[in-house]
Each structure stands twice: as C-alpha cells, then as structure tokens.
C-alpha cells in the first residue's frame, strides 16, 4: 500500500511538468498576445513590453526559465494584473473556490447517498419515483439556469439570501452558490447509489445475511453499502477535483472571488504564467484526488489490495 502511494506520488511530478509543457506550447500557438488590445500599440512600446516580461529572449531560454521556476514552486507574475504573483492569486482565490466546492461536495454526497439508498431499498415506491424525478431534473437543469432561478426566488422575491457577492464563510452568501453547484452532483450521486445498491441488494451475500436473520438496517448499512457505493466513490474523486477547481460558472453567476474568473480571463488575456499556474494546480488536484479514490477503494472493498 505504502509503496503504491509513493510510486503514484512520484509519477505525479513528471505528469504535471508534461501538462505544463503542453499548455505552454498551446498558448504560443494561439494568435494574439497579452498586450494585444483594442488599440494598436506602437512598435517601440511593444518592444518595451516584451523586454519587460522576458519575451524578447529565444523560446528555449524562456522555456528553461519557466521550468526551473516551476520546479522551485514559483509560477511567476501575472502579465495582466500588474504586480500580482500567480502564487499570491492562487493563495487568495483557492480558499473561496475550495469552500464552495467542499460544501457542495459534502451536500451532494450526503443528500445523494441518502436519497439513492432510500430509493433502492424502496424500489418502485413513491419515494423512489420522487427522488429519481428530482435527480433527473437536477441532471438536466444546467447550473446557469438553476442559479438565476434560485436568485430570482430567494433573493429578488423573498429577500432571504443576497443575490451575489461573497461575504466570507459562514454567511448567507454561501447558500445559493453551494446549492446551485451541488445540484447536478447530488443527482448523479443519487442515481449511482441507487443502481449500485440495487445490484448489491440482489447479491448472494445479502441473501445470506438475510438468511442469517440480520435486521434490514444492518444489512443495508454494514453489508450492502460497502459494495453499493463503489461507483459513487470512483465518481467522487474527479468530482471533488472539478468542484474545487472548476466552479467557473457558479463563480460568475454569483460574482465570487474564486479561481474561476481568473481561469477564464487568463485564457482570454493570454496571461501565460497565470494559465500555467492554474493548469498545474488543477492537474495536481485531479491526480491527487484520483489517488485518494484508489486508496478509498482498498478500504471499502475487501477484494481490492495494492
């Protein structure tokens, strides 16, 4: 187990560097530049700008410098936001994105698993139909529709929650973004739980447990859930990575100072260091969460050993 974890952690490093290299190349391929603006700038000013940010050097020098900086954990300074280092931007925006993402994750897992299990245990009952209808709605209603609907109802009609902006955690401003963000994940988790549980509840070992006279509660909690939740676990790793790093749409709808805005604008602005910083961070997060999922497998499913 320990060997497995160490091996995976070691492979993360070259993977991230590879992703960074690809990103760097792609940015170079995109037309336009960080200083391209509505107004054409004089060649002399362009020259000054390029010199200021080291773009006047040959590409291999720039690449080597980038790599050596990244290895030391320094992603450089944003080209667009004067004087703000990428590390500083990540440090400031991550807590916001993470708070929203984690809360949405917890909400999605708790409601999703509860609803899915209930639906599976009482298959074809009203509870089953109701929760699966809601889940279908959650999957098909995109968050850029759900968000404004919630705002309309709870902020502009009932005045319960602020319509946008961030007041820190905990505060009322957290509620609507978290619900909006978690809706689709809750729905997925509920459906995955239900199908996983249905399969397991028909398995031989459950029949054995029933035959031994165990009560239904113990069967579901101790025996069925372990196997029934495996699909949820494999889904939840990447889901957490995306929830924490990719709350772009929700951040824009609710004007939250998270990473999402920077990610969009960094690309539009061709803000190379910032793009690379965010991409590197996101890939690290995805690789790590996938590792966590693999570890979790070993704990939940007795059949899996590393």
């Amino acid at each position: 187990m320990l060997k497995f974890v160490i091996r995976r952690l070691l492979s993360t490093f070259p993977m991230v560097l590879l992703v960074v290299t690809l990103t760097w190349g792609l940015i170079r391929l995109a037309p336009g530049n960080f200083y391209t603006g509505e107004r054409v700038i004089a060649p002399a000013i362009e020259k000054n700008l390029r010199a200021k940010y080291g773009f006047d050097k040959p590409w291999y020098v720039q690449y080597a410098k980038l790599m050596s900086n990244i290895v030391r954990g320094d992603f450089g300074t944003s080209l667009k936001y004067e004087g703000q280092s990428v590390n500083e931007i990540l440090r400031r925006t991550l807590p916001v994105s993470m708070t929203i993402g984690l809360l949405a994750y917890i909400l999605a897992l708790s409601i999703g698993i509860a609803a899915g299990t209930l639906a599976a245990v009482r298959q074809n009952s009203r509870v089953d139909y109701a929760s699966m209808t809601l889940a279908m709605l959650g999957i098909s209603l995109p968050n850029f529709v759900l968000g404004p609907l919630l705002v309309l109802l709870f902020s502009l009609v009932m005045y319960w929650f602020p319509p946008a902006r961030w007041d820190g955690f905990p505060s009322r401003s957290v509620v609507l973004p978290v619900i909006t963000l978690s809706a689709i994940y809750t729905a997925y988790v509920a459906r995955l739980t239900r199908s996983g549980m249905l399969e397991v509840l028909r398995a031989d070992y459950i029949r054995t447990a029933r035959a031994k006279g165990l009560d239904e509660k113990t069967i579901v909690r101790r025996h069925a859930m372990r196997g029934g939740l495996l699909p949820v676990i494999s889904f939840s790793g990447p889901a957490l990575a995306f929830l924490v790093t990719g709350t772009v749409v929700v951040e824009r709808i609710f004007a939250l100072p998270g990473m999402g805005n920077y990610f969009i604008n960094a690309n539009l602005n061709r803000d190379e260091p910032l793009i690379i910083g965010i991409v590197a961070f996101t890939s690290i997060a995805i690789l790590l969460f996938n590792l966590l999922v693999d570890i979790a497998y070993a704990f939940v499913d007795p059949r899996i050993r590393y």
């Binding site: 902020s155 502009l156 602020p162 319509p163 946008a164 824009r252 709808i253 609710f254 004007a255």
Partner: peptide
C-alpha cells in the same frame, strides 16, 4: 463584476 444579469440582480435587490 462582469456578468450582466448578476449586476442587474444586485442592483434590483
């Protein structure tokens, strides 16, 4: 802020 509808919501509220 960049999202127009978000601005309108904040203004309206």
């Amino acid at each position: 802020l960049e999202e127009e509808t978000t601005m309108m919501n904040l203004y309206k509220a």
